[in-house]
Design a protein around this nucleic acid. Structure first.
Lengths: 197, 197
DNA sequence: CAAAGTTTACCGACCGGTCGTTAGGTAAAA
DNA sequence: TTTTACCTAACGACCGGTCGGTAAACTTTG
């Protein structure tokens, strides 16, 4: 019994994911929602407004999921593991929205673009702080913070591109693989040696 | 004194990169090339044909760069390092085309889409073979070949999204960072220990 | 409690504009 | 005389968005 505004949004997510924002017409969305295209404008001001709503809620949920995931974790390695896991799981569980969020930013007006990029920057900075802390503590190798944060984020983000919910691996299994890969890449050989240096 | 066909292609690459394939009109391309839009059709059969030409040449050059990079390298670790380096450098040096190749596949007809995806699969399989060989030889940890190959490729591909040619780091420096990060992630602690186990 | 007013959620018809593409023509080069 | 490389003009399709209207649901009021 979802209301029409929610239906329109979810139909749009499906279509934007499948065909892309520019290739999806208001008529397509209306047809998928079971109403006439003029009625879309009762619920959303414009096609771009609809895209902006999708991206905003996705980014907000993404960030709050990360903060929630970090709240419980202690110690820099465990915190980074929690962050990676949160990032991966969110992207795989809400694959379509995240795919759109990474592919259709160009559909936004300048103001809305800024708004979303600001949210993304805030999210990224959490990861960058974790990396910085890890290198300061000597747990991670002395890596380039910017590049490595991009690497970690795009790595997991890319999962939303190829992930198949009916595929061979579960979300948790994929998260395990990424977690180990990334932590190894951050440590770069700094594993606890049998004895002193 | 590039001929007009080449000019049109390179103007299209610039515009597809900046505004996206669907948001770029034939008029835009014609304007940027200094001719009328009808004249585009003397050189290319359609807008989609133009996109297909761009993607085909990009994929072909990408694969031959990889094969060339691998020809000189010996030993699985060195071969993987060479592969990563080739991939990173190609993506950063031909940033725009690679960005398009990863973002605009949806603009293709079914036949052309298949053609490009086949080329991409062939390219991926080279990386998958390298990973498989590395795990067989015990140089790399026992990782999931499919996922790790996607990880490696998307990692470097993402570079084409954020790379700034006038930025802080050179292509070679970025390639170094990725090379070490990826090799560490593949080895997952299997570094040569000071002495016997 | 019923009549009157107001709001909600939708519709069909239409608009100006842009799109990719084609037809037919032309002037210079081969 | 044919080919090359472009042009002007126009085509039909489709796009996002607006307009005026309407039936049903709520809210207010006598």
């Amino acid at each position: 019994m979802a209301d029409m505004k929610t239906t329109i949004k979810s139909v749009s997510i499906d279509l934007f994911f499948k065909k892309g924002y520019f290739a999806t017409s208001i008529s397509d969305i209306a047809g998928g929602s079971g109403i006439q295209k003029a009625s879309i404008y009762y619920h959303y001001a414009s096609k771009e407004d609809l895209l902006f709503h999708i991206l905003t809620s996705t980014m907000d949920d993404l960030t709050s999921a990360l903060k929630q995931g970090l709240a419980a974790a202690q110690g820099i390695e465990q915190r980074m593991r929690a962050a990676v896991r949160s990032h991966v799981c969110f992207h795989l569980e809400r694959q379509k929205e995240n795919f759109i969020a990474n592919a259709e930013l160009r559909g936004l007006t300048a103001d809305h673009y800024r708004s979303i990029v600001n949210k993304r920057d805030e999210y990224e900075s959490i990861f960058q702080d974790l990396i910085r802390q890890g290198t300061d503590e000597g747990v991670f190798a002395d890596v380039d913070v910017k590049i490595l944060s991009y690497a970690i984020l795009t790595l997991c983000t890319a999962g939303a591109t190829w992930y198949n919910p009916n595929g061979r691996l579960t979300v948790d299994e994929i998260a395990d693989i990424y977690e180990n890969f990334i932590i190894s890449g951050l440590k770069q050989g700094r594993f606890e040696r049998p004895a002193g240096r």
